[in-house]
Simulated assay, not measured.
Amino acid sequence: MALLTDLLGPMRDLAIVIATVALASGLLWVADRWLIQRRAHKARHRPLRQLTMIFFSLTALVAVVLSLPMDADVKKELLGLMGIVLTGIIAFSSTTFIANIMAGLMLRSVESFSPGDFIQAGDYFGKVTERGLFHTEIQSEDRDLVTLPNLFLAANPVKVVRSSGTAVSCDLSLGYDVPHQQVEDLLKEAALRAELEDPFVQILTLGDFSITYRAAGFYRNVQHLLSKRSALRAAILDELHGAGIEIVSPTFMNQRKLPDGRKFIPGVRATGARAKEASAIFPETLLFDKANRAQRMEMLESKRVEIQQALKDWPGDADPESPEARAEQKRLQTQLTISESLLAREKEKEPQ
């Protein structure tokens, strides 16, 4: 009987430890899945989810230590050691670890940009794909993913392209032999040809050998910003070459013997259906696929939450039995089903 008791004691202690580990793991998994389902696609809530999971993990670790078959004094010493190690880790990494967390929280409170926005910080330009507790991820013009520490974004100016529209511009230099009135008219025409609104031209500098101009116009659909910049440059080339204006450096030198009056302007090719078809292809769809997906999910989730709130407030002051209130409820439920279906479909489209 004493032998059985000696065997059952350690087994009971081991069972308690195993049960505690299993329960803690299960609760962490449930909490993670619940937070992911509710807030993972909302980028601004991701830091809160990460902080919550860190807190739950530390709590689970303490529970496992308390369940170990040890003396109370040993458990206290072990918990004290864990506290010292944790404090040391935070102290040694505070310059980056804590600083990035604080910078991430600051960026969330400011809300200067969100997934899908074009931003430029230092030499980095791209479209925001993800905002985390420690870093922000952007997708560059080459479709590559660039991870920027939140501390870097907090310490450097961040230029955000407004979703309501931005100015698309192009700078170029021409010689003093070309009248600036003619250049300004041609550049404005090029901006209109590139389908920019309210075009304008600025004279930036009067150099020793050339004048620097800037042609610009307003563009509303910032999703195709790169394509529109290229279209403006192409239109400028066509307009200036069509008017017989050379776009070469004033110090241009060519040692080949050429006829007098030879101008260095390529022959103008007729633009047909193939050119129009090429202009309708937007490379941003491929280059910023992950950022576009994050933006769509953000919009779909916002719409879903809005519809859920409307259903929660239904019928308001109206009679719930009236045909109008019933029709409104049915419409909201249909929109909610569609939004959830589209959101689930976007989650399945994980970019490679």
Rank of each mutant, 00 (worst) to 15 (best):
M1N: 08
S93E: 12
L66R: 06
I236K: 09
R331W: 06
E195S: 13
A19C: 10
S173M: 11
Q255F: 13
F113R: 12
D238L: 09
I84L: 10
F113P: 04
A280L: 07
V17L: 08
L153C: 06
L3F: 14
A294W: 09
E301R: 13
S339N: 13
S112D: 14
R39F: 15
R131Y: 11
L336V: 05
L51P: 01
K188N: 08
S279C: 06
L23K: 00
L4P: 07
L342R: 11
L7Q: 10
E246A: 07
V65N: 00
E184R: 02
M70Q: 12
A22I: 09
D123Q: 15
E239I: 00
L133T: 02
G244H: 08
A167W: 12
R162E: 15
E301N: 08
Q308W: 01
F56M: 04
G9F: 14
P259L: 08
G272F: 00
I307H: 04
F97K: 01
E306M: 09
L61N: 08
S210M: 03
V183E: 01
R39T: 11
A243G: 06
I84P: 03
G175P: 05
V30K: 04
T59M: 04
L35W: 03
I89K: 03
S109I: 15
T95Q: 12
A275Y: 11
V183K: 00
V160K: 06
D177C: 05
T20C: 03
L148A: 08
E348Q: 14
T129K: 14
L187T: 04
K228G: 03
I18L: 03
T251P: 04
P250N: 09
Q181E: 14
S140Q: 06
R269Y: 08
E195P: 01
F209L: 10
F134H: 10
S279A: 15
F92A: 12
F55I: 09
L107S: 11
